[in-house]
Simulated scan of single mutants.
Amino acid sequence: MNILIVENSIIPFKHYGGTQRVIWYLGKELYKLGHKVTYLVKKGSKCDFGKIIFINNDKELYEQIPNYIDIVHFNNQPADLYKIDKPYIITMHGNLNNNNSLDYNTVFVSKNHAERYNSNSFVYNGLDWNDYSKPNFNKKNCYHFLGKASWGVKNLKGSIQIIKGLENNKLLVLGGKRFSERVLKMGPAYFLSTKVDFKGMVGGKEKENYLNMSKGLIFPVLWHEPFGLAIIESLFYGCPVFGTPYGSLPELINNEVGFLSTKKKEIKNRIKDTGLFNNKYCHEYALENFNSKNMAKKYLEKYSVVLNGEKLNLNKPELKNIQNQKYLKFE
Rank of each mutant, 00 (worst) to 15 (best):
K264P: 10
L260C: 03
S159T: 00
S193N: 10
K280G: 10
K199R: 15
N278W: 00
N279H: 13
K263Y: 13
K272S: 10
K157E: 12
K177Q: 11
S234Q: 10
A189H: 12
N279Y: 14
F277T: 02
G158L: 01
K272E: 14
P240V: 00
F179I: 15
G216V: 03
N169V: 06
L172A: 03
S214N: 11
N168A: 05
W223S: 13
G187I: 11
I232D: 08
I232N: 02
G243I: 07
I163N: 05
S159M: 04
P240C: 03
L171F: 01
K154G: 01
I231Q: 01
P240F: 04
S214I: 12
G243C: 04
L166S: 07
W151G: 04
E256A: 13
K199Q: 15
I218T: 03
E256R: 15
G175S: 04
W151L: 15
C282E: 00
K164S: 07
F259V: 04
S159H: 00
G258F: 05
L249P: 02
F277G: 06
I271E: 10
G243M: 03
P240E: 04
C239T: 07
Y281V: 01
K199Y: 09
N269H: 08
Y246P: 03
N278M: 00
G158N: 00
I232Q: 06
I271D: 04
V257M: 05
R178A: 04
G228H: 02
E167D: 15
E208M: 12
L171K: 02
M213V: 12
W151Q: 06
T194D: 15
L184A: 14
L217G: 02
N291P: 12
G200M: 04
N278Q: 00
F259T: 03
K280P: 05
S159W: 06
M201L: 13
G216I: 01
P226N: 08
I232F: 13
R270E: 15
F191V: 14
G238C: 03
G243W: 04
T262N: 09
L217R: 11
P245H: 07
A230C: 09
F179M: 14
P220I: 03
H283N: 10
K195T: 13
